[in-house]
């Protein structure tokens, strides 16, 4: 292993998003505060509690998850695409770095961004929303595993994308709708049967409910099942992203 190379690229990836924290950290915090204030405090008086949980607190785990997976996936995808468009990919490909080392550095960069954002939103939820966390270690562990899965997915997207349009398509047409449909703002039990069946095919549904269980002790899906799905996704997607890097598809000619 080229440990120094891996460390260098990882610190570049982490340093890059911290340098532009106004784009990568602050927006998620602001939108979460707005969601809590507008959706929570205004609608709370009109929506009865869900399974004995006040509406404001009910939506917080979903907001944490949405920020975590969006940030985790967009760090490697945008960084790699930017490197492609600015001609920096050769710097990596011509260095004595293996595909595994390059992939790990990008995945770790995305995981750090996902976890940092997830924990900051969690803290906001506790501070502004007054949420109490039932299983703190499991919560952080779950945020971590989901970050690995979505950071790996971001790395794969970054490899395949040629334009910013490709990436925003993925974000706007898949990640955001699937997050909203995964039950951030509602319990799936409120949906008709057919919609509940469709929700079972949405992986983000398990991510949101898994985190809702570790924080609030309530979940639409079986929490163990949610954790296994998150774990399988993180292993599967990281393998696919690493193998794609090894093949050089869209990275080498």
């Amino acid at each position: 292993m080229n440990w120094i190379g891996l460390w260098t690229l990882t610190s570049r990836e982490v340093g890059r998003f911290f340098k532009v924290y106004r784009q990568t950290v602050i927006p998620g915090l602001i939108s979460t505060v707005l969601y809590i204030l507008i959706f929570g405090f205004t609608l709370e008086q009109r929506i009865s509690s869900i399974e004995g949980i006040s509406y404001t607190i009910f939506i917080i785990p979903g907001l944490i998850m949405m920020n975590t997976l969006t940030n985790a996936s967009s760090n490697p995808s945008s960084s790699l695409l930017q490197m492609k468009l600015t001609g920096q990919v050769p710097d990596l490909m011509q260095a004595p770095l293996s595909s595994l080392e390059i992939s790990l550095a990008f995945i770790i960069g995305g995981v750090v961004r996902g976890v940092v954002n997830g924990i900051l939103i969690l803290l906001i939820g506790m501070w502004i929303g007054g949420m109490e966390v039932l299983y703190p270690i499991a919560t952080i562990g779950f945020i971590f595993v989901v970050s690995v899965a979505f950071s790996s997915m971001g790395l794969l997207l970054g490899q395949l994308a040629d334009t910013w349009d490709n990436l925003s398509t993925m974000q706007n047409f898949f990640l955001t709708p699937l997050s909203f449909l995964g039950g951030i703002f509602y319990s799936v039990n409120m949906l008709p049967d057919w919609a509940q069946t469709i929700s079972a095919f949405n992986p983000i549904y398990y991510m949101i409910n898994g985190l809702r269980y570790t924080t609030l002790g309530f979940s639409d899906s079986d929490p163990q099942y949610s954790f296994v799905i998150a774990l399988l996704m993180s292993i599967g997607l990281s393998f696919i992203a690493i193998f794609s890097m090894k093949s050089g598809k869209k990275m080498k000619q």
Partner: peptide
């Protein structure tokens, strides 16, 4: 330049 050196395993 330090990144470039780092990729080549140089502290």
């Amino acid at each position: 330049l330090y990144f470039q050196a780092g990729y080549f395993g140089i502290r």
